[in-house]
Design a protein around this nucleic acid. Structure first.
Lengths: 241, 241
DNA sequence: CGACAGGTTGACCGTTATCAAAGATCGTGG
DNA sequence: CCACGATCTTTGATAACGGTCAACCTGTCG
């Protein structure tokens, strides 16, 4: 079972070299399935189905009926919705171990966003009925999912509140500060998406991102490198913006 | 058990006349506890504890440890957070049957928002341990909560996306359109909060709300009455704004 | 009756979106 | 491996959207 380790350690990183994971081993990746008995794990594995999608293809789109929970095994997936006025807004980027499809799962509803593969991607599916069966059989899993959900909810509400109250510069500064430690050791980071997508994620335009990053640089708070690499020179200052 | 009916029918309304509910009958109100066996209901009731708070008092505040799920029995509670830059932002208003405290519950974390009673209010508490015990014992409840959570998550993400992409006028128009059918029969509504609070909810200022409502009125899309009563004259037009 | 919170209106200005055009980068196919 | 087109990025000029400040009005509550 060292496949798990291998993948886990490289999530959020840039490893493209692992490609021979068997069938449904990916379930072991997902936090919600942690700490289960081995036989339960096997039962779960038996219920999953593995899917590959190529870069640029959609896992699902809005108005599309959903009946599965998707667990990202390998690759990178962009979840975005197109707003009432037609603008695209990025919700989040999925990395190995993340899952999606939950909403449609419990609501018996359609998807209302797009899931687009940014890289060649491998995914595990669990059908709604199978998952619900599992939840009833092993209540612990529900608690795990509830934790995950409440985490997501918290984040989403915080995000909403930020859009509502902070100006672009602050939103950007906060984003940098938050993304930082996740990405590299020493106060630097590599943007996990294009600046265009970052703009959409932060609810602004590419032009503004460009300008604001320059401003932050001129204030000696950050230093931009190549390829969206950014060094943070003054974290405290950044958070005061 | 007609207490349930009585309260259910008046939620979102303006009934102040029911005040003699016994102990923990309120659990029967909550969607997540629907369709349970009677003995289970009784078990749940035994675990709940009833609390009253007066208008203007806080149910909880941020930085405060939480260990209970709160179910609103009677009254009206405003949930808001104060953003990084110190501005207050309203998350939602609770009506009888709604619950709060979930986040802190599953995350073993502190609250990060305020819960303020807008009216004299009655609440049922269930302790974290008790609730988790229930969830493990009756997995069906988990599914209910998961439904509720995914509903909330969907709403919150949609909301966030709106803040990010729509301008004030659209946000306001959408809010009116959404709040409408819930409030009265014929295309009219009564704002459930002050315009000041509405401004905060929509991520803008009272001044802007005032002006935009006037604009909508001048476009013959709505008609303002007394006390935040608004008649919608042209729903389609409103949604095109 | 006065104080106070909410609401409205006006004037002003900062922030940020928009449009346009040029430069950089990436991926693809020859 | 290079060249091409597509896409992303930057920069500049402009304007609109909306926040802020200040004054005034209204209704409510003690």
């Amino acid at each position: 079972m060292n496949i798990e380790k291998e993948i886990t350690t490289c999530s959020h990183g840039s490893c493209q070299n692992h490609s021979n994971h068997k069938g449904s081993a990916c379930v072991s990746l997902v936090p919600i399935f942690n700490h289960l008995e081995e036989e339960q794990m096997e039962e779960i594995s038996r219920l999953t189905q593995s899917v590959s999608i190529k870069k640029g293809e959609f896992l699902y789109g809005p108005e599309e009926e959903s009946s599965s929970l998707y667990i990202l095994n390998q690759g990178k997936i962009k979840i975005y919705r197109s707003s009432e006025s037609g603008k695209e807004q990025i919700q989040r980027i999925l990395y190995p171990g993340d899952f999606t499809g939950e909403l449609a799962l419990f609501n018996e509803r359609m998807h209302d966003s797009f899931a687009l593969a940014l890289e060649d991607t491998e995914i595990c599916k669990i059908k709604r009925e199978d998952l619900q069966g599992l939840l009833l059989k092993y209540p612990v899993i529900s608690l795990k999912i509830l934790e995950e959900f409440s985490q997501r909810l918290l984040q989403s509400e915080r995000q909403a509140s930020r859009y509502a109250t902070e100006k672009v510069e602050s939103r950007l500064a906060m984003y940098l500060a938050e993304t930082m430690d996740e990405q590299g050791g020493d106060y630097s980071l590599k943007l996990p998406m294009t600046k265009k997508d970052l703009a959409s994620y932060l609810g602004t335009t590419p032009e503004s991102i460009s300008r604001k990053l320059l401003e932050l640089e001129e204030m000696n708070l950050i230093k931009q490198g190549q390829n969206g690499c950014i060094e943070i020179l003054d974290l405290d200052g950044l958070l005061l913006v």
